[in-house]
Design a protein around this nucleic acid. Structure first.
Lengths: 215, 215
DNA sequence: TAGATTGTTAATCGATTAACAATC
DNA sequence: TAGATTGTTAATCGATTAACAATC
């Protein structure tokens, strides 16, 4: 029962969470896996299988209580406790994330931004103070940082990763276009790879309506 | 031979493309699936299997020519021809993407930004002119748009999606936090779901070092 | 030629789907 | 009770990995 949970299941959890939040906001109290499957375009038995990796949160003959299931999945995702966040790189993406409402909530709270550009240092972006990159190590020495968001050019990524690791950062959310997950085993890394997602879209455009990829 | 290509293979293609670009930049001329597997942390036979969905681009006893394979995969991804792009929503994410260098190249070229805020209309963000949302439909009537990047609040997304579809847009790159892929079948949609990615990271932080997800 | 490495078929493994007994 | 729906086991399906003949 103590469970290995497959990557596929983990990646579906945020979708369930999002959907349950919406149902809750709409005042829906109860839902069956069948109805939820219809709404999310998933097969009911997959939903039950996924949820049961973590426990039996439903009631036979009734279905699931929306709020209770939302809370359970929130806890499973670790959204029930706070994470301190810093953003490295105050370029356009870093600045955009500093404005992101999700990053100024109870779950994720952005404490600082770091940048090499002296013109930005000392300013305030979306309410977040911008520090010099030179201050990073001393900042890490005196503050607990759960998540560092990496928004620097890929040339700078590796060196910064080492400093984050040395500074005891738990996890990195990486926006630089390179795979960092294998570069470290003391820190968790999640790669975003925005351009990969765009290229997948481009692939589909090139191959839609039965264009055979091979002649 | 005319091939169905699985989702899993498609999602790995951008990774191959990125890696081959890097090898090319480093002046590497030739590579075997074994060496590439070592570098990318993939199994050689998977790389060969993936590539062979599209054709035999290698040479027995030699491996692959880096430039040639990079070009082939680039074509497969549709990166060899131009895509016109518009961005809907000039908030922080929309603006950040307007500054994104990839969006001002030969493959992806950003032509216009649309926003409801009158203060932004008429300005220029990253060299891209900002138009009023009211001008969207007439713009679509007179310009071919390949990709619309959706960076609006989720409440506004559905109505705009309908207008994009009516205007003949081919594909949508969706940054709004809702699943749009099933809402349309005439347009292709790729959902980014940034917050899902962050939540997966949060999940891993909560369950690392053998924390059993189930007691 | 001998060595290397592909392209491809076959074997394995894991994830998805179906089925159904338990039970609310 | 009868109907509904879960939790879970079993069956199916598809993706990954291994093996190897072909051949550069």
């Amino acid at each position: 029962m103590a469970g290995y949970v497959s990557e596929a299941v983990i990646r579906r959890l945020p979708g369930y969470y999002r959907h349950l939040c919406e149902l809750e906001a709409m005042g829906v109290k109860q839902i069956s896996s069948q109805e939820m499957g219809r709404q999310m375009h998933l097969i009911p038995s997959q939903i039950r299988q996924d949820i049961n990796c973590f426990g039996g949160f439903g009631r036979k003959g009734y279905g699931y209580n929306v709020t209770s299931l939302r809370q359970h999945i929130g806890e499973i995702l670790g959204l029930d406790h706070p994470h301190s966040v810093i953003i490295i790189g105050a370029g356009s993406i870093g600045s955009a994330l500093a404005h992101y409402p999700d990053f100024h909530g109870e779950t994720f709270d952005t404490k600082a931004l770091f940048d090499i550009d002296p013109a930005r240092v000392g300013t305030n972006i979306g309410g977040v103070p911008v520090y010099s990159m030179e201050e990073l190590d001393s900042y890490l020495a005196s503050h607990r940082v759960d998540i560092a968001v990496l928004c620097v050019p890929k040339e700078a990524a590796q060196e910064i990763l080492n400093r984050l690791e040395a500074g005891g950062v738990s996890a990195v959310w990486n926006f630089a276009p390179l795979d960092l997950q294998h570069e470290t085993d003391r820190m968790l890394v999640e790669n975003v790879h925005l351009s990969d997602s765009l290229r997948v879209l481009s692939y589909r455009m090139a191959h839609q309506d039965g264009d055979a990829p091979k002649e």
